[in-house]
Amino acid sequence: MGAHEHKLAIFRGLIKFKSNTQKIWGVLVFLTIVTAVEVVLGIYKPAVLMTALLSPFDGGFGATTANVFLSPFIFLKPLNLIFILLTLVKAYYITWDFMHMRDETQALRRMVVWTAVFLVAYLIFILLQEGGYIESIYSSGYIKRGF
């Protein structure tokens, strides 16, 4: 079985391992560090990270567009943004190194990842949008727009 050559570099070639076994332990160390960071942040919740970086823009079309594109910085606490990003980082290394996605062909990679990412992004958008809409109706006395 010669088809089991692994790509042994992670972090875009910054760290190169000598063997697949060594890479597995290296990735474990990295994932453990990321989880530890999450847990420490989750326990201490630094006050700096508890308020959003930007406040929503008021005004016309431009402001609305800015609110959409900058939504992670306007409507999310930096702490939660960090948690979500670290989760995606962990997911990447589990898929790429433990599940050996790094060694699969580009076509298989794209078939699996793009399909899931596109559909999940759509699902999250549509459900969170709707949830937020219902909340805004509850909190504004069952009136969404007072014309």
Partner: peptide, 27 residues
């Protein structure tokens, strides 16, 4: 792999539904 994609979508559906309810009662 394809089974995993479909299972991932099932879990995403659950977690997104959790997000929906949480946003609905965010206060």
């Amino acid at each position: 792999w394809f089974f995993i994609v479909s299972d991932a979508l099932t879990f995403s559906g659950f977690l997104a539904a959790y997000g929906f309810s949480r946003f609905k009662y965010i206060g």
